[in-house]
Simulated assay, not measured.
Amino acid sequence: MTATALVIDGVTLTAGARRLVRDVSLTARPGEVIGLVGPNGSGKSSLLRAVYRVLRPATGEVRVDGEDAWSLPVRRLARTVAAVTQESAAEFDLTVREVVAMGRTPHKRLLAGDTAEDAGLIASALAAVDITELTERPFDRLSGGERQRVLIARALAQEPALLVMDEPTNHLDIRHQLSVLGALRRLPATVLVALHDLNLAARYCDRLYVLDDGEVVASGAPADVLTPVLLAEVYGVTGEVAVHPLTGAPQVTFLSGPPDPGGPAGG
């Protein structure tokens, strides 16, 4: 697995007459963890779908390692890009190991069995998200959080150069939120991840892109992007941003709902 560059250049996405994303540009250098943040309905999931080739841009281009992602052969795309989506709730009549092993499919000939290398990568993926003890459990009998970790493990087993993740910490308890995002930081891959939790985004992402109403309204290092002004303008809440004493990352504290336009911030 070797990390690759991602460039989203002037992408507009539509659904019928409705505009989902307008003229969005984003870059991710090899090995970076890039966070997409913003309110519900801001266009985060739609933009990710354009990267893993579910929603074709009306205008603009998505380039992976310098090539148009929408022109890549399907097998090559599958060897390069892995996705963990919010629509991954399929009922698999398979064991946990069998679901994770599906991640090796793009790297194998049709009907080929697992090699020793495959087995090692599958075991490593299971361990990375703390589900080794679930290996032989039926996937369809797992909790929501356990299923989420299995699908993340499947993506890790795929050894992608670019990993795209839509709210991967949904359904996870705090311990597993931290372990999954910590595993992403250690991957030799480029990661584009949509997150709701601003403190997790600030701690684990190299740079953030803030979407609001389908447009990028701010981008940069977490410390530069996450400000009380942005929280008020984009999220409609009053908050403070401090430096975490241990991690050095910005730490957001929410104080109240929408700021009072007739009074001081936080009042």
Rank of each mutant, 00 (worst) to 15 (best):
Ala78Glu: 02
Thr27Lys: 09
Asp212Lys: 15
Arg29His: 13
Thr105Gly: 02
Val164Cys: 06
Ala128Lys: 00
Leu163Asn: 00
Val64Arg: 01
Ser219Val: 04
Gly60Ser: 12
Thr190Leu: 02
Arg76Met: 12
Leu77Gln: 07
Ala50His: 04
Ala265Asn: 09
Gln86Thr: 15
Glu32Ala: 14
Val21Ser: 01
Val225Phe: 04
Pro168Trp: 02
Arg18Pro: 05
Ala127Tyr: 05
Glu146Gly: 09
Asp130Ser: 15
Asp9Glu: 15
Trp70Phe: 10
Ala15Ser: 14
Pro245Glu: 12
Leu110Ala: 15
Val193Cys: 07
Leu255Pro: 01
Arg97Gly: 03
Leu26Ala: 04
Thr27Gly: 12
Val84Gly: 00
Leu121Asp: 02
Gly257Met: 07
Leu198Lys: 00
Leu126Phe: 05
Lys108Leu: 14
Pro57Tyr: 10
Phe139His: 04
Ile34Cys: 06
Leu162Asn: 00
Val210Leu: 10
Pro264Asp: 14
Thr253Glu: 12
Gly31Cys: 14
Pro160Arg: 02
Val180Tyr: 00
Gly120Thr: 11
Met1Lys: 09
Thr85Cys: 08
Pro222Gln: 13
Gly38Leu: 09
Pro73Cys: 12
Val237Cys: 13
Pro259Ile: 06
Asp260Asn: 15
Ile131Leu: 11
His171Arg: 06
Leu211Lys: 01
Ile152Met: 05
Cys205Ile: 01
His171Tyr: 15
Gly103Ala: 10
Arg22Lys: 14
Gly236Tyr: 10
Leu195Ala: 07
Glu136Tyr: 13
Val74Phe: 08
Arg154Met: 07
Gln148Arg: 15
Ser143Leu: 11
Pro73Thr: 14
Thr4Asn: 03
Pro261Glu: 11
Ala232Phe: 08
Val7Gln: 10
Val193Glu: 00
Ala242Asp: 15
Ala218Cys: 11
Glu240Pro: 01
Arg186Asp: 12
Gln148Ile: 04
Glu117Trp: 09
Leu111Arg: 14
Pro57Trp: 08
Val252Tyr: 01
Gly43Val: 04
Thr115Glu: 09
